[in-house]
Amino acid sequence: MKGEFTPKIVGFLCNWCSYAGADLAGTSKLKMPPSVSSIRVMCSGRVDPVLVATAFLRGADGVLVAGCHPGDCHYEKGNYYARRRFAILKKVMETLGLESERLRLSWVSASEGPRFQEVITEFTEKIKKLGPNPVKEKTSL
């Protein structure tokens, strides 16, 4: 494993809960690795599986989808749809030869600044252990 590996992780955050939770982590000045680039979407259910797959094919070492806790969705049930798609995506990833742990779905509420920090730190550690996205090697050939 390369010592200097800094993973590139795409983080889709739902506007109402997780993006707000990430903001609260910031307001509380909680430090975390810079590996996750957050992308604001209105709902975790808006995260197009094709976008997730594309991210992996284009070399993302990890993808995080974070939304409201079950039952908290601002749009009633978007996070349930996200969860369903997530389950299928995990299967697809395995067939692509990607460790399914590279995709993570987390529930982070607007008051959970520390939890956001924890999710980001843990996930980054996990991806570091997994090493770079193996598909990247193939696609760059």
């Binding site: 209105m42 259910g45 808006r46 995260v47 197009d48 594309t54 749809y81």
Partner: peptide, 28 residues
């Protein structure tokens, strides 16, 4: 404007204004 339809649409017909596939793709 939750965008669930655009994530679910298999033919790319449904699009979420201001959070279009292209716009989010660029960010990715």
């Amino acid at each position: 404007g939750c965008g669930n339809c655009s994530a679910a649409c298999p033919s790319g017909a449904a699009s979420h204004k201001h959070f279009t596939f292209r716009q989010v793709y660029q960010e990715v």
